[in-house]
Structures are given as structure tokens and as C-alpha cells.
Amino acid sequence: MARKIVFTSGKGGVGKTTLVSQIGRKLASLNNRVLLVDADFSLNNLDLALGVENFVVYDLFDVLSGNCRIRQAFIKDKYEKNLYILPSDKLSANSSFSAQNIKTALLGVSKLFDFILIDSPAGIDNGFKRAVLCADEAVVVINSSFESLRDADKVINIIKSYDIDKVSLILNRARGDLMMSGYGVSAENVKDLLKCSLLGVVPDSDALLTLDGKKLSRLSSADKAISMICNKILTGRGDIYDPTLKYKGFFGSIKRSLRKSN
């Protein structure tokens, strides 16, 4: 049976869709069978994040309405043979389909996958609840902004009141240069503040920002951070990416001053 993990957040635009697609690709490249489900019915972008938006024929709406079988709606990723996407183009935020409807649909294919990653909408409305209730584990994506941290605390408390086995955090778009200058919120601070375990840290990275569905360069720091997260997902152990590392030492201080002047 697949592990079903929902990626959610209080604040929007923190990187859920980006992380679902890149963590999905990385897990698939490590020989895991992975399905990505777009449960963000209003602002569905998972197809775009993986560059398969032109291949959508059937979607989750068709599956839930009985217009097609679930496997007919799967789109195979361009780069990873073990990765499939279940898009949600035709659904709207106030769709009447429930988490139970989606869970039942996924149950039939759960044996075919090792992981089902669910992309949730931001906020704490029905769409969020629907997405979270489909999963057994939750990852709350945050960035260092105070709004994102405050909203995340509310989200974590709601998730903890559901039947979810595990909740953890990913600090995305971490700015090592700011952390070094004492401005950014450190991973340790975040863990303490939100009383939640940390699954990983992903740096603010141009490689991710300019990806457009293509494959992430193996040489990028974001790729390294995502590999470390996948290792933690797979083994339950491992280190967390340190975004301050490349800003340490003599060359690091030059990089830091260059970045700050941007």
C-alpha cells in the first residue's frame, strides 16, 4: 500500500506544488513508484510544474464522475518512468466531491504505488480539509516570513485534530545569506516555535524558480536539499540541508555581499 502524504500550508505560494513535483521526481528516480495527485481544485498547477499541461485528457473530475477509469487519467512524467500525475483541470474549489470520494478512487490503485503525494490548496477551507483527509501523513510547507509561520501554526493544530499519523515541516526558500546575517529564521527556531519536527530545508534557488517543468539540475543546491528530504522520507533519518554553508568562509562572505546588493 502506498504512503499517502499531503503537502499543505496556511499561506499560499510557499512552494507546495514545486516541492510535490520535485520530491515526486526524486523519489521516482530512486526506484519508487510515485503518483502525484492535484487536490488543489481551484488553482491547479501540478501539470504545469511538471510540464505536462498539454497532455491532460481525463482528470480527477472524470474519475470521480465515472467518465473514465482512474488509470486512464494518469499522465506519465516526461523524465521519470515511475512517476505519474493525476491532474484536476475540470474541478472547481466548490466542487461537491469529498475526501472520501477521492480516497475511494485512490484505494483501487494504492497497491500500484509506493508513494501518493497530494498537492493541497493553501488556506484552511474545505479544499484544504478535503486534501488533508485523503492522506495518512502531512508535510506543512513554510518559508521564513512571519505570516507563513503564523498561518502554519494554525494549520498544524487543525491537522493534529485529524486522524493523521505524522506531521512535519519543510522550510522552503531558505535564505542562507540572511540567516548568516542574523535576519532569517533558523531551522531550529522554526522547530521550537511550531513544536513540529523538521523534514527538510530547501534553499531559495534560481534553478527551481526557472524550471518550467524541466528536470532539475543535479548540480543545483536545491537538488541536494531535495535528495536529503527524500532520504528522510525513505529512512526516517538523515541530515537536513544547511543553506548557510555556501555563505561561510572568505568566498562565502563575498557571495553574501553580492546577494544582498540584489
Binding site: 512571519f146 540567516m179 542574523g182 535576519y183 532569517g184 529564521v185 533558523s186 531551522a187 531550529e188 527556531n189 521550537d192 541530515d239 537536513i240 544547511d242 548557510t244 554553508l245
Partner: peptide, 12 residues
Amino acid sequence: MAFRKNKKSEEF
């Protein structure tokens, strides 16, 4: 893990 605990700023 290599993170130090940042001194908590007034804002934090």
C-alpha cells in the same frame, strides 16, 4: 545538523 540556534530577535 549544522544549524545554530539564532539569537531570537525582538521581531521573533
